[in-house]
Each structure stands twice: as C-alpha cells, then as structure tokens.
Nucleic acid binder design. Sequence first.
DNA 1: ATAGGGTTAG
Length: 468
Amino acid sequence: MAATTSFLHMRPPPSIFQISKLLGSIVKKKHYATALSLWKRAHSSGFTPSTVTLNILINCYCRIGQMDFAFSMLGKILKYGNQPDIITLTTFMKGLCINNMVGEALDFHDYLLAKRFQLNEVSYNTLINGLCKSGQIRAAIKLLNTMKRGVLKPSVVTYNTVIDGLCKYGLANEARDLCSEMIHEGIPPNIVTYNSLIYGFSSVGQWQEVIQLLNEMVLNDINPDVYTFNILVDAFGKEGRITEVHAVLAMMMKCDKRPNVVTYNTLMDGKMRRVDEALDLFKEMRCKNLIPDLVTYNSLIDGLCKSGRISYVQDLIHEMLDNGYSPNLVTYNILLDAFCKRQQLEEAIALYKQVEGQGVQPNLHTYSILIDGLCKGGRLGTALKMFHNLLINGYCQDARIYNIMINGLCAEGLFDDAINLLSKMKENGCFPDSVTYETLIRALLGKGENEKGKKLLLEMVARGLLKR
DNA sequence: ATAGGGTTAG
C-alpha cells in the first residue's frame, strides 16, 4: 500500500488512465478491498473517476457483496454526465447473480430491454451462468435456445457455460449431447468444454467416458492443461485412489505441465487426515516458488485444527495475514468449528459476533456449526432461538440443520419436542433423511422408549430410507 | 490504452 500511495503523489501526477490500469491489475489478483481502499485515497487526493474507473469499482463492490455501493457507483456515472455502457450493465448483472439475486438480474435485463439498451453476447452469457449457478439449469437451456433463434448467437462460451452447469448437476450425459449439438452447429469444443465434461464424468465415476474424452481431445489436437490434470487429481483423490493420483501426476510431468497452487491444494486436501504429509507438501510448494493462496491456508488451518495442532494454527493465520489474505467465511467456519469442538463456546460466540460485525453474511454451514456447538455446550435455549430465527428467515429446506437440532433435543431427553420437530420439518416441505430417523430411533431405544422407536423405524422403512 | 462472460481446489 505504501508503494501505491507514493504512486498517487508522483510528479507529474498519474493520469486517471494509469490509476484505472493499476486498479485493474489489483482486481485481476482478486484483491477487491485493496483496490477500493486505494481508490478512496486517490479520490481524496482529488482524482476524478472515469467510466472505466467506476466500472472497476462496481465490480469490486459486487465481489465483496456490497450491492448498494455498487448501485451508487452506477448513479455516479450519471452524475458525472456519462452513460453507463454495456460493461457497466453487464458487471452489475454479474454482481446481482453472484450475490444470489438472479431474479433481480433477469428483471434488470427486462428493464434494459424495455429502455432499448443494447446488450451483447457477454451479457447473455452472464445471465445464463447466473441461472446455472443458482441451480436453474432448465431456465438456462431455455435462454440458450432463445439465443439460437435471435441475433446474438451462442458462442463456445455460451455452450460451455450450460455444459458445465449440466455437469455440476450430475447430468454429464446430457452435457455430452449438448456438446454434440454444438459441433453440429459448427462450433468446435475447446479445452474448457473438455474439462467440464471430464469433471462431469469423473465426479460420477464414469471413468470409461473420461478416458474416451481424453482420447478424443488428443485426436482433436487439444492438449490437456493444468485444469484437466487438477480435475483428475481431485476426482481420484476423493475416491482414495492414490495409485491413480500418482499416475496423473506422472502424466502431467510427461506433458510438461507444472503443478500449480491448485494442484497442491488438491493434493493437500486429499491428505488432510495425514497432516504431516500435507505440511510436507506445503513446504515443497514454497520450495517451488508457488505462492500459497487463501484456499491453501484454509485447508491447512482446517487440517491442523482437526488434528489438534492449535499452536501452529496461530502462526499460520499470522503468515496468511502477512501475505495479504483476509480470512473469508470459510476461514471463519473452520475456526468456529474448532472452538465448538474444543468446547470453547465463549470464544466461538465472540468470533461469530465479530464476523457479523464485519458485515460478513454467515451461511447455513456457519449456523449448523454454532447450533451444534450450543447444544453440546449445554446452551439448548440459545440454540433453539437461533434455529427458529433460521426457519423464519427461510432456511427451512435443509435436513442437516433439523438433524442437528433434533440431536440436541434428544441429548437433553426432550423426545416429544424432537418428534414434534420431525413433524414440523415435514410440514415445511423438508424431507427427513436417514440421519434424521437414525438420530431419533437411537435416542428413543437408548432410553427404553421402544414403542415410539419402533413406530419411527416403520416410518423410516416405509419411506425407503433404510440402508440395505 | 484501463473495465464485463465459460473450466479445477475448501
């Protein structure tokens, strides 16, 4: 920051073009908060933003979830007598999408159309991606088909977006059909297409298809890249197939592709049960001049917490901060979980308040950790309060959160309350899973409540939830 | 010239 501050005071002063360029390079590294604070300094030194500057700032605010500020930057463009351009509008739509407001993004699109603003292919790709990422894959396909009939034709990026969406949804076969369709339309698949498809088939264990895709790639003169190898390392690692992981790494070397941070993160993640090996990889990574990123730190912190090596966690957090990474929600969830599991409930609550105070929006995982921690720490009342707040705020479709609360009630012997919660869960349209029934049945039978236990066991069987 | 879209990891 010192270097950038002196940059602002250069003689002659930098142009707004140079400042925008610097902001852009900071954003490229995803250091959005840094870019914003640099701009604040520039602004107070008297620099006036151009539309490009404001577009960059809109992007920054969107990425850190401050949509109200992003919107006020939109207003600033008008205030300076300029018109938002296609990049402004697309950036803003992207912001709505990544902040769980895809519906608003679509409304914004309709509004722009009504005002006769011209959007382009990138704008549509942004919307299609938003739909895919929010699980509305059918709506995304519909929009793709609309594009086919219109003036803005889908490109390889458009197809890749939907293909990836299908693959993430476990619909690899359908994705493959779409790839054939795209070839039929005269658009050849590229490395991204193949990577998505390989991810899709490897995540459902259809290795034959994966091998076929790899062969097909080579035939089409498309070489596997680091992404391809990382996807394979991850998929094999998740299945515990260490031999295959090593084979992929060997193949990677043979293709002259160097492992990157993601490769190391993936390998470390697969070895978190063996923290020492993960730490060795961490050292190796630094020997190769690969800079650890936030994911690296989060995985290591998680592994160290779970293996009880707390003193090292502190060092690592300091190192992480020194390297310019601020903890994100994943970091906080890891630490909250560690505090709860170590029965340091007061520390957990203090951290939670700190997170809220920073304006970071906790997610369902945060609440699951806390409610479980509160129950196990003898604070059932507080847990119930937090749980009911969640239901009121619309988090009522996730079985895991009910399971945690049911478990908490059972642990206190409050079986009737637990059974009532099962009913409430069904009323809310959330399907109990095998964990729900196992929790209740185990607790009831353990306390000699055999009749109630038996009744639930029958219900579980009737719902087809009993494991064979 | 500087800014917006698709692929991997928690």
